[in-house]
């Protein structure tokens, strides 16, 4: 995103909307400017600030900068998933897709969330760490398609300096491998200069309980009292082998 200095009157209306603090006031010129290293091309300033002189404009984005917009602007529709945003349908449609089966856990590592954003070099530290444990990344996820090697979790070098507001590393593992994933994440979380929000997806067991709680307790991981529940209204309902419903 850019601000036309010829037009800007320095009213600072746009400054607070930026989620990564990329808009600053140039004291000598008395205009607002955008630090393009920090700007994640989320579109918020353009949408929300209602600039009185229309000085904010979207420059043409060229590769690899385009990934900032794909991962940061909620209204960008990505080719891989076909939906707006940076993730996939994940558990939201699991009642009809059967993507997450009994005995498996979906893992979603949302890099940069909340607030800080993430450089792709930090994202790669995490993808490489879990790839070394043999995970298979979700093919529909836009981040997966950016990898130059999905078995090692490596991205093209030209991407590593790009910053995004957040991006989700997604994969599914059998329940008996989740302890290994937790250990890896504990370790790699100390090597990155940002945060990630972690989510696990699972079908509920026969008494409607989350089957992972004892594992999380074992690792002393606090899990939130709230989260998302698919309530099985989609049709046709996916049936696993042996399921009666």
């Amino acid at each position: 995103m850019l601000i036309n200095s010829e037009l800007c009157i320095g009213c600072e209306k746009c400054n607070p909307y930026c989620p990564v603090g990329a808009i600053y006031t140039d004291a000598s010129e008395k205009v607002s400017k955008i630090d393009l290293t920090e700007c994640v091309e989320c579109g918020s300033c353009l949408r929300q600030a209602n600039c009185p002189v229309d000085a904010i404009y979207q420059q043409e984005l060229v590769w690899p900068r385009t990934i900032r917009s794909i991962m940061s602007d909620p209204l960008t529709i990505t080719e891989e998933s076909g939906i707006a945003g940076r993730g996939t349908e994940e558990m939201k449609t699991n009642d009809v897709t059967g993507r997450f089966r009994n005995g498996y856990v979906g893992v979603g590592i949302e890099m940069g969330r909340p607030i800080l954003g993430a450089y792709m070099s930090d994202v790669e530290k995490v993808t490489k760490a879990v790839a070394a444990y043999g995970v298979v990344f979700e093919p529909c996820n836009p981040l997966t398609t950016l990898m130059s090697d999905q078995t090692s979790g490596k991205f093209q070098n030209e991407l590593l300096g790009e910053k995004v507001l957040s991006t989700i590393i997604e994969f599914t593992v059998p329940i008996n491998r989740i302890s290994g994933i937790i250990k890896i994440l504990k370790d790699v979380s100390k090597q990155i200069d940002t945060v990630f929000s972690l989510g696990f997806i699972s079908k509920l067991d026969s008494d409607e309980m989350f089957p992972l709680n004892h594992i999380l307790d074992e690792f002393g991981i606090n899990y939130a009292p709230n989260g998302k529940t698919n309530v099985g209204l989609g049709r046709p309902l996916f049936k696993e082998k042996g399921e009666l419903v």
């Binding site: 994940e90 558990m91 699991n94 009642d95 997450f100 979906g106 979603g108 909340p114 607030i115 800080l116 994440l185 504990k186 979380s189 100390k190 990155i192 200069d193 940002t194 945060v195 990630f196 929000s197 972690l198 989510g199 696990f200 997806i201 699972s202 079908k203 509920l204 409607e208 989350f210 992972l212 999380l216 991981i221 606090n222 899990y223 939130a224 709230n226 989260g227 998302k228 529940t229 698919n230 309530v231 099985g232």
Partner: peptide, 17 residues
């Protein structure tokens, strides 16, 4: 309840938040 997505919190540089 069919499938659940559980949040396991924020990891990494939480000191920057």
């Amino acid at each position: 309840m069919h499938t659940v997505n559980q949040s396991l919190g924020i990891w990494g540089r939480t000191d920057k938040l």
